[in-house]
């Protein structure tokens, strides 16, 4: 049995050697998942905000759907995106299948509901505090949303982080729409899946450890931003 200790050694070795392929994979992982997170925030935040402050019929149903979509299976998302982007699919003419863009699209679909649902919660809580004051000031709905998003920005960072965490860790969607093509669409998770299927469990685990360290790094960066903000009572 290949030991976890061996994986640690291998991970250190990989990082220390400055392996070019590894760097390429790591950078692509970050590029795809960070872009997907950014786009998902652009889509999910306004939706979350509208549901947070809106009082419309069917709101309860929208909430249930939003929360349910948080559990979208990555493979299903991958499949649906594949069917659309396939050359024989409705968007095949774009030639996006097996590109990082396709992976960004799939991950965006995967995490936009997470961003929407979690930011809805954050903004609704803040709105409960601000609502009466804002009504007294006669703010428009747009002004209210803008103010809420701005004032909740540090909490929303955590929401973005949750989305990023899900995106960077998923394999089911990107392996279908990206194809795990070497030097083109291979990311950390698909590389881990590949090494596992080759039976190279130590290498797979080593890559997993590196992914974990990257996730830790991103989290630590966001956390330090939040701490700074907390000192200034912006949280």
């Amino acid at each position: 049995m290949q030991s976890i200790g061996e994986a640690f050694g291998l991970a250190l070795q990989l990082v220390a050697s400055g392996d070019g392929d590894l760097l390429e994979i790591v950078l692509l992982s970050l590029r795809v998942s960070l872009t997907a997170t950014a786009v998902a925030c652009l889509i999910g935040l306004p939706i979350g905000a509208l549901v947070a402050i809106g009082r419309f019929s069917g709101r309860g149903a929208v909430l249930i759907v939003m929360n349910a979509l948080m559990g979208l299976p990555p493979v299903v998302v991958g499949l649906v995106v594949y069917l659309h982007l396939s050359r024989s699919g409705p968007l095949g003419f774009l030639g996006l299948l097996y590109t990082p863009t396709a992976m960004i699209i799939a991950q965006t679909i995967l995490i936009a509901p997470i961003v929407a649902a979690l930011s809805r919660q954050v903004l609704e809580d803040l709105h409960a505090e601000y609502a009466e004051q804002f009504r007294s000031l006669c703010l428009t709905r747009l002004q209210t949303v803008q103010a809420l998003i701005w004032d909740a920005r540090y909490s929303l960072l955590t929401v973005g982080l949750a989305g990023f965490g899900r995106a960077v860790a998923e394999v089911g969607a990107v392996i279908i729409v990206g194809g795990n093509i070497d030097h083109l669409t291979r990311v950390m998770t698909t590389a881990i899946a590949l090494e596992t299927s080759k039976g190279d469990l130590a290498l797979a685990l080593a890559l997993g450890l590196i992914l974990l360290v990257i996730a830790l790094g991103v989290n630590a960066a966001v956390q330090s931003v939040r701490m700074t903000a907390a000192r200034h009572a912006h949280v």
């Binding site: 872009t35 590109t99 990082p100």
Partner: peptide
């Protein structure tokens, strides 16, 4: 502007393999 940048990023990403 942010939306435009995101769109551009997607287009550029697509270019890489064209």
């Amino acid at each position: 502007r942010a939306l435009g940048a995101a769109t551009l990023a997607i287009l550029l990403a697509g270019q890489a393999c064209a």
